[in-house]
Design a binder for these strands. Structure first.
Lengths: 100, 100
DNA sequence: TATATATTTGGTAATATAGCCAAATATATG
DNA sequence: CATATATTTGGCTATATTACCAAATATATA
């Protein structure tokens, strides 16, 4: 495998890895319903502010979410909604063990 | 979040996490082209036999691949091809930074 | 300006992951 | 049966991840 192919694989794996944590996946699915500020996500997730903030930073670095600071709050939105269509596939994996 | 919702999230995150490693993602994309034995994957990946075997075990536990032992060889196949359709989305994330 | 609120950053400890080697297991073949 | 090949498992070390706390930063408001 050449360097270019390898770096594409690496980049894709990075996105998938970002989604591969229960808290981050939860956040992504919550953001699918609309913009949320960090404080809302903290309440929903039930973890420390710093923990949620770090998960959000990681998602942002992976290119999955974007942030928008307005006043003293930071609002996060899902940058790549196509990810959600994939969830049906993942769900199929865990429910029936296969998909089309 | 209730226990049931939590365990669904956990299961989905497990699948995504399994895909979130360059070597495993490479294996999945290779299996998308057809069945491969471990020895072929070892050559393609260029890592130790035991390393590849462990990645395959992890993918199997996540429900992504299945194995079939024939003779002294073990052949792996992709169990959930719908995962591949998702790759276009992931690729969009890393190339253009957004998707529809 | 002082203070409260929202968020991020730094530090740290516990746990998980990845990769290699060596050993074990299974199957085929001489 | 002995040996070679294919694969997995166990053990180990290095590295990465996660979560919390405390401190720093930024912004709003009294």
């Amino acid at each position: 495998m050449d360097d270019r192919a390898q770096s594409i694989i690496d980049a894709k794996a990075k996105v998938l890895k970002a989604l591969g944590h229960p808290t981050r996946l939860f956040i992504v699915e919550e953001l699918a319903r609309g913009e949320r500020c960090v404080c809302e996500l903290v309440k929903l997730v039930g973890a420390d502010f710093s923990t949620v903030s770090k998960h959000l930073t990681l998602l942002k670095n992976a290119g999955v979410v974007q942030d928008d600071k307005r006043g003293q709050m930071v609002y996060y939105t899902l940058k790549v909604p196509c990810i959600l269509r994939f969830m049906d596939c993942i769900e199929a994996v865990i429910v029936s063990g296969s998909c089309k």
